[in-house]
């Protein structure tokens, strides 16, 4: 970039182009939505298969699929934090939000272990709704906000069906709040 006198119109172009370059890197966010979307979606279908088709009492073992996700998320976030050369308000907000959500998810595991897992799925869907709705607001990405709104409806609706079908409601919730917005986010980042 050369040092020279330039017009007010040039100034505005410089400002616009530089501000565009610092907009949130959307791709980094889509990775988490797609990873956790596929893991939870797989966990739901696997548990449904083990519970309804195989009829095993060990259907809950389906959720072991999330262990690689936890390890990958920790590894990836440490690596990303180490490598990133710029801190934006958006990336900081997303980091704080999902760190908080992760702690709540873990706390919920302990709470449900004590009080019983029979009503776990509507509560988890509520968590997905809150996390994705706020993320959509931070990233100004409407599909995430819409996914969050649909999750609130699914969370309430799931209380009218039995436990087996609540698993399918959770799969639907993760599809609309993580997977579909995750792919749209990835596509948007790719086009950008």
């Amino acid at each position: 970039m050369e040092e020279e006198n330039f017009s007010p119109r040039d100034s505005l172009q410089v400002i616009q182009s530089m501000i565009d370059k610092t907009k949130a890197e959307l791709s980094e966010n889509s990775i988490y939505f797609l990873l956790w979307g596929w893991l939870v979606f797989t966990g739901c279908l696997l548990q449904y298969f083990l519970l309804v088709i195989i009829k095993t009492p060990y259907h809950f073992l389906a959720w072991l699929v999330i262990i690689p996700g936890i390890l990958f998320s920790i590894f990836y976030s440490i690596k990303y934090k180490h490598e990133r050369r710029v801190k934006t308000y958006i990336s900081d907000s997303m980091s704080k939000l999902w760190t908080g959500m992760s702690i709540s998810f873990m706390a919920l595991c302990f709470i449900l272990t004590n009080i019983g897992w029979q009503h776990a799925f509507p509560i988890y869907i509520l968590f997905y709704a809150t996390g994705t709705f706020i993320s959509g607001g931070i990233l100004q990405f409407k599909p995430l906000q819409l996914g969050g709104i649909i999750c609130w409806v699914l969370a309430v609706a799931s209380t009218f069906v039995n436990y087996q079908n609540q698993i399918l409601f959770t799969a639907a919730a993760i599809l609309v709040s993580y997977l579909v917005p995750g792919y749209l986010l990835k596509k948007k980042a790719y086009n950008k």
């Binding site: 970039m1 050369e2 040092e3 020279e4 330039f6 040039d10 100034s11 410089v14 400002i15 182009s17 530089m18 501000i19 370059k21 610092t22 907009k23 050369r85 710029v86 801190k87 934006t88 308000y89 900081d92």
Partner: peptide, 29 residues
């Protein structure tokens, strides 16, 4: 009112903080 200084300020106005290498890459300076 200097192209490079304005570019640096425009980059920094939208972020919390940035490394020198980030500014160098984005401004091509």
């Amino acid at each position: 009112h200097s192209q490079l200084r304005l570019a640096v300020m425009s980059l920094l106005i939208g972020v919390r903080e940035a490394e020198f290498t980030f500014l160098k890459e984005k401004t091509n300076a």
